[in-house]
Nucleic acid binder design. Structure first.
Lengths: 123, 123
DNA sequence: TCCAATGTTCGATCTGCGTCGTACGGTTCG
DNA sequence: CGAACCGTACGACGCAGATCGAACATTGGA
């Protein structure tokens, strides 16, 4: 019985209300940083659990739910209900508009990898 | 007896070896974020204690020393010995070259302030 | 030489948060 | 309806890190 569609839709903050300190705190965690990078690589709506298998992250589903909530509250991702599961996606354009260069930075700097010496030259 | 000048000089990591996760963790703390903004506003070599009085941050000197070390290890600031005191400065050009847009982002987004209007939906 | 001022280091404390297990709610299908 | 699945909410636990005070090192000046 489909009486009323209640809270099925998940809301995220308007991009204008997102503050940079919240974003930095959200990205400071290695699991969430990896998660955001994976979402960026995926490009479109992805199941959160699938991100775990792709990245090799091993955490419980409650922990995953917690991280997704932190990222959503920070305005970085959006959640959509798809039947029995929930899909998430990176709010790339909005975030890049409010914090220019931030996501580009994450994309270019591979996970926790320092540049291999050679101060001059190379790129 | 002034024998040898030992470790008076303070060293910071080469900018190429700085990883983005360390930088994000360093900036995730509100005290350090305020500190970096103040250094950016100052523009040149500044005494760490003076930053506290400028920003109104009230922490002990040992805590301040700790935060400065974290920021220095993260490659964000540089420390110079000046007689009885130590001066710090933001490595603006280097950081901006390695992480384009990062410091500009901090500069434009005032401390923990969201955009005033929320066009759609509110709350 | 002695003392004041500044900053680092060390140990201890305490809060925040990442983590998990369990219980609960919603959805799909038999 | 009931069972299986997926995700969230809640409480508890443990650890990393933020904080402080005290002791020490260094410098500069009385």
């Amino acid at each position: 019985m489909a009486t009323l569609r209640l809270v099925t839709e998940v809301t995220e903050p308007a991009i204008e209300t997102v503050t940079i300190d919240v974003v930095l705190s959200a990205l400071a965690d290695p699991v969430r940083l990896t998660f955001v990078r994976a979402l960026d690589a995926a490009g479109d709506w992805t199941c959160g659990s699938d991100v775990l298998s792709k990245t090799g992250i091993t955490i419980s589903k409650s922990t995953l739910s917690h991280h997704i909530k932190v990222l959503r509250d920070a305005g970085l991702i959006r959640t959509r209900v798809d039947g029995i599961r929930r899909l998430v996606t990176l709010r790339y354009d909005e975030v890049e508009r409010r914090f220019p260069g931030l996501l580009t930075m994450l994309r270019e700097h591979g996970l926790a990898r320092a540049a291999p010496e050679a101060p001059t030259s190379t790129a």
